[in-house]
């Protein structure tokens, strides 16, 4: 509210509660005599305060005494009651989180199976997921080397069918792309790589038909079962409480 008086509402409010010093008290009382409007403001403010102070007192709708469970759940200690162990307090909180993480990893492992980088487990043309940039680069070099091998092929072609030799080289290309260790060895002496060496390598195993489930997926799946069970039990226990 705006007013023309020199006495503010704050001073007037403090005057009602006598929360002002002597100088302010004299100033207010002097102004009250001189200004009828100020007197009116004081009266309405006093009526407001009186109304508020007459507000009925309420009865609490129920009692708020704490049960042992409430006190313990709040982290307080209760004499005569064993404090829950650390794992008893934290297991109910961590289990749902752990279940969610394992479930996500499980779904991820099904969608993108964790592949071993061992060469004899690689499918033809499968890109190794764990290859570093360095080994990928080396693998590319190996690929280009292997593609240049047809120059040495005629020596091999004496005893073999040309088409078979070509077929033998293709697995060598994929093998080179797969194994970082072998790539390093090959890059140490690329010139010594001959068609005989290439052809003497074991035949790559064909990729098994159907979706492949890695051991990691199995492990996550097995872990998920007890975690889901624990989460279910904890949820039921909370509902009952």
């Amino acid at each position: 509210m705006r007013h023309s008086s020199t006495i503010s509402d704050e001073l007037l409010s403090a005057y009602i509660d006598r929360q002002i010093n002597e100088a302010e008290l004299r100033r207010v009382e002097k102004a009250l005599v001189a200004e009828p409007a100020l007197q009116q403001r004081l009266e309405t403010l006093q009526a407001t305060v009186a109304l508020l102070r007459s507000a009925p007192s309420l009865v609490a709708p129920r009692t708020f005494v704490l049960s042992e469970n409430q006190a313990l759940a709040a982290g307080g200690r209760v004499r005569g009651v064993k404090q829950p162990e650390f794992w008893e307090r934290w297991l109910p909180r961590l289990t749902p989180v752990a279940t969610a993480i394992i479930a996500i990893l499980f779904i991820f492992s099904i969608a993108h199976p964790f592949q071993s980088i061992e060469p004899n487990q690689m499918a033809d043309g499968a890109a190794p997921t764990a290859l570093t940039n360095k080994s990928a680069k080396e693998a590319q070099e190996m690929q280009s080397l292997a593609l240049e091998q047809p120059a040495a092929a005629p020596r091999v072609a004496e005893s073999r069918d040309g088409a078979k030799a070509a077929n033998d080289e293709k697995p060598a290309v994929s093998m080179a792309a797969a194994s970082a260790d072998e790539t390093e060895k090959a890059s140490e002496a690329p010139q010594s790589l001959s068609a005989e060496q290439t052809s003497s390598r074991p035949e790559p195993q064909p990729a098994p038909a159907g979706p492949r489930v890695s051991w990691t997926t199995w492990l996550l799946g097995l872990l998920l079962i007890p975690f889901i069970f624990l989460t279910w039990r904890i949820t039921i226990a909370r509902w009952r409480r």
Binding site: L12, E43, L45, A47, V49, L51, S54
Partner: peptide, 29 residues
């Protein structure tokens, strides 16, 4: 002090607008 005075002044304005709803002994002068 300042919050109290603002609150009282605001309540005074609100209650003055609706003082016909107040019991007789609490109506403003």
């Amino acid at each position: 002090k300042s919050r109290l005075s603002r609150a009282r002044a605001r309540l005074r304005d609100i209650l003055q607008e609706h003082q016909e709803l107040l019991p007789a002994q609490y109506r403003f002068p």
